[in-house]
C-alpha cells in the first residue's frame, strides 16, 4: 500500500505525467517502425541514426542553439534518406555505411563537446554525454512545449503508418514486385526514412541513443515469436512496447532506477516470456 501511495504522490506531478505520455507515444512509434526495419534487415539503422543524432546534438550545444531539435532533426532526416535510398546501388554497402556514419558521428560529437567545454552549460562533459547516450533523467525535465511537439510528431508517424500500411507491407515484403505494379518505391523509402529519423530523434529523449535499437528490435522480435501474420505482429508489437514502456517508467520512478535501462530490461523480460510461449506452441 505504501508503494501505491508513493506512486500516486509522484503521478500528481505534471512533470511525471508528461514523461509518461511522451514515453508511451515514443514506444508506440518505435515499435511500429521496428517491424519494417527488422524485416528489411535494417535493425542497425536505428543505432547508426541515433549516433548521428547525438553528433548533431553535440554541435547544436556547441553552436548554442536555443532549440537543439532545429539542427538535430534535419541532419538525421537527411542521413536517413541517404542511407535508405542509395543503399542498394552505392559503392559502400549499407551495413558498412551505417557503421562508418555511426562511429564517425559519435566520435565527432564527443570531440566537439570536449574542445568547447565552455559551451556545455552544465559544466560536466562526461555527465552530459552520458545522459545523451543513456537517456537518464531528461525525461523528467520536459516542458509542455516538448510534450506537444512529441505528441504532434507521434500522431504524424502513426498517421503515415495507418494510411500507407498496405504499401509499406508490399515494399517490405518484395520491393521489386511492388515497383513492378507501379508503386513508387523511392517515394515511400524517403517517407519511411523521414519517419524513422523523426522517431529516433524522439526516442533519444526516452532511452538515449545507445538504447534505441533495443526499443526498435525487442517488441518486434517478441511479437514474431508468437504471431504469424503481418498485421497481428504489428498490433502485438505495439501493445508489447507500450506495456513495457509504462511498466519500465513506473518501476524507475518507484525505485529510482535509470529510465532507459529499466524500460529495456522490461522489454527483455517480455521477450523471454514470448519466446517461451512460442516454443510451447511449437
Amino acid at each position: 500500500m505504501e508503494l501505491f501511495e508513493k506512486l500516486m504522490y509522484y503521478l500528481s506531478y505534471p512533470l511525471v505525467q508528461y514523461a509518461l505520455v511522451v514515453g508511451v507515444f515514443i514506444a508506440l512509434c518505435s515499435s511500429l517502425l521496428g517491424v519494417t526495419l527488422v524485416l528489411k534487415r535494417l535493425s542497425f539503422i536505428g543505432d547508426g541514426l541515433s549516433h548521428v543524432a547525438f553528433g548533431a546534438m553535440a554541435f547544436a550545444v556547441v553552436l548554442n542553439f536555443s532549440n537543439q531539435m532545429l539542427l538535430v532533426l534535419p541532419v538525421t532526416v537527411l542521413v536517413a534518406i541517404l542511407l535508405l535510398c542509395t543503399g542498394k546501388n552505392s559503392k559502400i554497402k549499407g551495413d558498412s555505411a551505417i557503421a562508418m556514419l555511426s562511429v564517425g558521428a559519435l566520435a565527432l560529437g564527443y570531440l566537439v563537446l570536449n574542445v568547447f567545454p565552455e559551451m556545455v552549460t552544465s559544466g560536466n562533459v562526461a555527465g552530459d554525454v552520458c545522459s545523451t547516450l543513456f537517456g537518464s533523467a531528461s525525461l523528467l525535465t520536459l516542458s509542455s512545449k516538448d510534450v506537444w511537439l512529441c505528441i504532434g510528431l507521434s500522431v504524424f508517424v502513426i498517421g503515415v503508418f495507418v494510411f500507407f500500411y498496405h504499401k509499406l507491407f508490399a515494399i517490405t515484403f518484395d520491393e521489386d514486385f511492388a515497383a513492378a505494379t507501379g508503386i513508387r518505391v523511392q517515394v515511400y523509402n524517403i517517407l519511411l526514412a523521414t519517419v524513422i529519423a523523426v522517431v529516433i530523434v524522439l526516442a533519444m529523449k526516452l532511452v538515449g541513443s545507445l538504447l534505441i535499437s533495443a526499443l526498435i528490435i525487442f517488441p518486434t522480435m517478441s511479437a514474431m515469436r508468437v504471431f504469424k501474420s503481418f498485421k497481428s505482429v504489428i498490433i502485438c508489437s505495439a501493445c508489447t512496447s507500450v506495456v513495457c514502456a509504462l511498466t519500465g517508467m513506473l518501476v524507475s520512478i518507484l525505485f529510482s532506477t535509470p529510465v532507459g535501462a529499466t524500460v529495456v530490461a522490461a522489454d527483455m523480460v517480455l521477450f523471454g516470456v514470448f519466446a517461451l510461449i512460442g516454443a510451447l506452441k511449437g
Partner: peptide, 23 residues
C-alpha cells in the same frame, strides 16, 4: 524471392498485395 525466411505474413495478406496497383 529474397523474402526473408522468417517474414511473418499470411497467404491472404501476400496475395491481396497484388491488388495495390489499382488502389
Amino acid at each position: 524471392t529474397i523474402v526473408q525466411k522468417d517474414f511473418p505474413a499470411s497467404v491472404e495478406e501476400i496475395v491481396i498485395s497484388g491488388c495495390l496497383s489499382r488502389s
